[in-house]
Computed example of a mutant assay.
Amino acid sequence: MNDISPPPRGWLADLHLAAVFLTRLPLPDAGKPPPGGLAAAMRCFPLVGLGLGLAAGLAGMLAATVLPPLPSALLAVLALVLLTGALHEDGLADLADGLGARGGRDRRLEVMRDSRTGAFGVLALLFSVGLRATALAAMPGGWEMLTALAAAAALSRATIPAAMQIMAPARADGLGASAGVPDASVAAHAAGLGLVAAAVCLGLDGALAAACGALLGGLAVVVLARRAIGGYTGDVLGAVQQAAETGVLLAVAAALPRAAG
């Protein structure tokens, strides 16, 4: 099933499908994608992420004109959550509950499928929102908040097809398996677009720091998922994005004061 090669599609069609999948924006229905179509459209994930980050960052930037840094940053994160329908946050919470469950691989996968959120999931969300918001609040100003969030949203979504390249599906069913596996060219396109977006937003030095943060955050989840459940699910991929986004924002927050000095 994962080896099916989708028919060639244009960039606009892939961008539309990626935006419909990743956001809750009122976009025209993309219809049922062909087998492997979503995997191929993942090359556009960073572009969608860039747009989401710019929109959320603009909300935070506007809020910063009348509010202190932390409330402004929290509103920026809230805007991102609303735009995506908490798609990736839901995956992070489910994976955290699975990792915290007692038992073997099958038990962890069973817990991850439970729609209820447990203590580990709640704590994971608290740390995700808290770390992202405090990192954004540490930015020197509203413009830096906007560019950092745009870079983080783009780069973190570029890690999703990369993670699927180095892991196997943990289940034979579910979104992680049914989406298909993006080939190396899709992962390369996504990585390239994510890095270009980061470089435009942050400059070369900032993009390097951001890339290191995304890599460390994403790899941490990959290692945990491979050990705990043997591969990826849709929840794992959501957690990869969240960890990578958090890693980018922390790295940029650490690098900006040095660059300013």
Rank of each mutant, 00 (worst) to 15 (best):
G213L: 09
M61Y: 13
V77Y: 04
T134E: 12
A150M: 10
A151I: 04
A244D: 11
G31Q: 07
L52I: 14
I166P: 06
P35L: 07
L250Q: 09
L25K: 10
S185W: 14
P68R: 09
V111W: 01
H189C: 11
V129P: 07
A197Y: 04
G141D: 15
L83H: 09
D90V: 08
L193S: 02
A63Q: 08
R24D: 02
G10T: 11
L204Y: 11
G230Q: 01
L224F: 10
A96N: 05
T147N: 06
V129L: 13
A18N: 04
A93L: 01
I4D: 09
L87I: 07
G37L: 08
P68I: 03
L80W: 15
D235V: 03
L249F: 10
R105S: 03
L78F: 12
A40C: 02
R9G: 00
A254R: 09
L131T: 12
R226H: 03
M112V: 14
P6K: 03
A214Q: 10
G49I: 05
G231N: 04
R226K: 12
A73G: 11
P169S: 11
A228V: 08
V196H: 05
R226V: 02
A168S: 15
L125T: 10
A41G: 05
P8M: 08
L80E: 15
L149F: 12
T159G: 02
G192F: 00
A137P: 09
V186Q: 01
M139I: 10
L95H: 00
Y232R: 01
G51M: 05
T159L: 12
G174C: 08
D114P: 11
A198W: 04
A124I: 07
R9K: 09
